[in-house]
Amino acid sequence: QEVTLRLHHFLPAISNVHRHFIQPWVQKVQAESQNRIRIQIFPAMQLGGAPPQLYDQARDGVADIVWTLPGNTPGRFPSIEVFELPFVAHRRAAVNVRAVQALYERRMRGEFADTHIITAWGHDAGVIHARREVKRMEDLQGLKLRFPTRQTGEALRALGAAPVGMPVPQIPEALSQGVIDGAVVPWEVVPSIRLHEMVKNHTEIAGSPTLYIATFVLAMNKAKYDGLPADLRAVIDANSGEAAARMAAKPWDEEGPKVEEMVRKRGNQILELSEEERNRWQRQTTPVVEAWLAGMKERNIDGGALLEEARALVTQFGQGVS
């Protein structure tokens, strides 16, 4: 028996994640199934709809597999937001992918119960890319920064910035028109939107835990998964969970530094936040964490336990990783 699956996602085919995670993962699954599983990739929302609809497309079978951000639909997957809180995640994707996947397995299956999650993961340390230098908290005052997910927006607001929410493809236009002064995204995204040509300053947050990351899931339609013959399901399973998460770290941990090198060679200024300044930022953003905890309490979820566990996992997997 042969099956063809449609994989749908929101980035163009030239993007790092498409080339360095989605494609290799698809090729591996196809090869290990002796080509009995065929996966057609539809990048750039080719199958229609908008990015916030991707998760439902997997749930409803509009696509068989989707790559999406839980943060695209704020409020819907509250638990996974724990990794998006300020100063929780590690600076390396290799650590975050394992931590997110482990916590997903322990505590979040319920929230994603209407799909089959192949893997859940998070990227590496996000970087502040801005027109002006950001060395201290005061430099953020009034800076209009595009933010990726809701919790990061709250954190930036707490630090004095003016967070502006918009989809990634809007960033170049908004920057050239002064609607924003910069954006916070990981290095990996920079070349695809030519961010390095529009801003000159890039601020990295030293050490771990880092200011923020965003989380992702690779979600599969449940009926499609359950309907696979046992041996093909085993192929998917062998490329799920931590195994897939480790593959997912590549675009960020391997391509990210290449981008950083390219940007440095171009003559842009790459700043690093001092340890002392980082601690100030962490203190300043604690109300964001507290607000999230209060919000979780309203939903009858023990946010405190989640947070503790997330931090423990990051520490555990982060042993010996700089």
Binding site: G48, G49, A50, P52, Q53, Q57, D60, V62
Partner: peptide, 20 residues
């Protein structure tokens, strides 16, 4: 048909309510 009907559940809204 069932898949198409699912696809249409929110598509007109998200198509029309777009900043661009």
């Amino acid at each position: 048909a069932a898949t198409l009907l699912n696809y249409l559940k929110t598509t007109p809204y998200f198509l029309f309510a777009s900043y661009t």
